[in-house]
Design a protein around this nucleic acid. Structure first.
Lengths: 202, 202
DNA sequence: TTTTAATGTTAACACTGTCAACTTCAATAT
DNA sequence: ATATTGAAGTTGACAGTGTTAACATTAAAA
């Protein structure tokens, strides 16, 4: 039953929710403020009462997506509380799995122009960055691993290991999600082989 | 000296050249057909005599960029004709270096919506894909390496090694170029350490 | 020399983000 | 209880976008 009152009640939340759905359905480039407004049965300019401009709405949507992504990583980590190495590999696999199954999230979070604007936003709001940002989850997992297996990859410091493992799963996610690389068969088993490859861990 | 005649002479080439410059200067989202036309001293709709639509111009521009990128990879490979392993590592480093120094190329070639349209284009024009596409350069280098060092990474097949090494340099390029990861110091020496890390080659 | 097709132009359309000005209405202050 | 105010909605307008249709120019082919 549509709320026919002049005031909507919770437009801000519905804009984010509807926006995420539209972004998922129609892609980043086709995304338009007016469409979101229309989908919420509200005038073109109503969103401006809740967001300074289009970018800020997209950033809010991206925050939602970032949270979901981070939860996914954290869950993988939490399933192996006493095994830092397995935490790292399972988190890596979860990373790839999440983005291959949700390619639109990948574009929103990392592959669109929004990425640059979000970086600015994070600089302006460091408190967010320090809490449940995937970067932190990744970094902490690396630190636990390095602490638990001090002999590991002696030639690579913490920063290099971070760049190595993050870069690896990030790149693989994109290559698969964007169909950059022709793959036959089950990508997940390939990914597991790679990520667990003893050649790069331990 | 501006060519004042009604017909331009070589508008198509100038559109691509000017377009690449604008893309580089103002970024992908700010890029507009009308601006390119204006920059070429030509009416808004003149480009439509040479390209079916905006996408086709961008694809043409991306082809140029793709060629430059592939040349860069090929050059790195050619500098070590008798050392397949060094070919692979140096190509990887060149890969990262190219995109970190030309982040707008990275966006154009891999991070924008254009990526998807280009994939469709490649499917329609497989002859291009088979020649000087970076994918081929990468794949051939992997194959030479695998042939030269058959014992390498026994647990990983050619497809997995491809996904591993390409994913690694691709991901690292993006993390650095997009400033996703805070880096202090010289990124190139870090990259060299990682890519040459004996843990993942041999 | 005539024809024609390639290459240019102008005018218009629908769509976009955004602003200014106006309206409604719930909550607060008197 | 009533007046006021400010948050949240509206309409209308503007400049910029991609794109199409109709027309103009001119180099090359017939």
């Amino acid at each position: 039953m549509p709320n026919k009152s002049y005031h909507h009640g919770d437009l801000k939340a519905e804009l984010i929710r509807t926006g995420l759905k539209l972004l998922d359905q129609e892609g980043y480039e086709a995304f338009s403020l007016r469409k979101v407004a229309k989908a919420c049965n509200v005038s073109q300019t109503a969103p401006y009462r809740h967001f300074k401009n289009k970018d800020e709405l997209i950033i809010a949507i991206a925050m939602e997506a970032m949270g979901a992504f981070n939860e996914c990583l954290q869950k993988a980590v939490d399933q192996h509380p006493d095994n830092p190495k397995k935490q790292l590999t399972e988190m890596g696999i979860a990373y790839i799995h999440f983005f291959v199954e949700n390619p639109e999230y990948l574009r929103l979070l990392f592959l669109s122009d929004m990425r640059y604007k979000m970086n600015e936003y994070f600089c302006a709001h460091p408190e967010y960055f320090q809490n449940d940002h995937p970067f932190q989850t990744f970094f902490q997992t690396i630190e636990r691993y390095k602490a638990a297996v001090p002999s590991s990859n002696q030639s690579l410091g913490k920063a290099e290991l971070m760049l190595f493992s993050w870069g690896l799963v990030h790149g693989i996610s994109i290559l698969i999600a964007n169909k950059e690389i022709p793959l036959e068969g089950d990508y997940l088993s390939m990914v597991r082989k790679i990520v667990e490859s003893e050649k790069f861990l331990d």
